[in-house]
């Protein structure tokens, strides 16, 4: 699916990366805890989160996450948008809650970047 379609499904506002909406995405991960994102998300996935500080962008950059969807209508501070522009990571904002956003995307074919975690995940 194209990021453009994600935007349409979630009725989202594009805050950064209007020129990158033709990017292909197939998987997603949702969490507000960045340590969990680091542990379980995979590169190339969408990150759905309600956290808006610049650490979200750094976390996404560390993992080569494709794009960030801020849920629950969250609007990030300017330093987060600056970091996203610097790292070339698209940021979209939707007023849907995390559960609803995930459901709407799943219904259209986006799957979890990790479907079920191992008791102890050692390898990627």
């Amino acid at each position: 699916m194209l990021l453009r379609e994600v935007q349409k499904i979630l009725d989202a506002e594009v805050l950064v990366g209007a020129d990158k909406l033709d990017m292909e995405v197939h998987t997603a991960f949702g969490a507000d805890l960045m340590s969990d994102v680091l542990a379980f998300a995979d590169s190339g996935c969408l990150l759905l989160t309600g956290l808006t500080n610049p650490q979200v962008i750094r976390t996404a950059d560390v993992l080569d996450i494709a794009a960030i969807i801020l849920v629950r209508g969250k609007k990030p501070p300017p330093e987060t948008l600056r970091a996203a522009s610097d790292k070339n990571i698209p940021v979209l904002s939707t007023r849907y809650i995390l559960f609803e956003s995930a459901g709407r995307l799943y219904e259209k074919g986006i799957v979890g970047s990790t479907q079920k975690v191992d008791g102890r995940r050692v390898r990627l």
Binding site: S35, D36, L51, Q55
Partner: peptide, 9 residues
């Protein structure tokens, strides 16, 4: 608030 500090690090 930064999304850390949950005893995962």
């Amino acid at each position: 608030e930064m999304g850390f500090g949950a005893g995962m690090g």
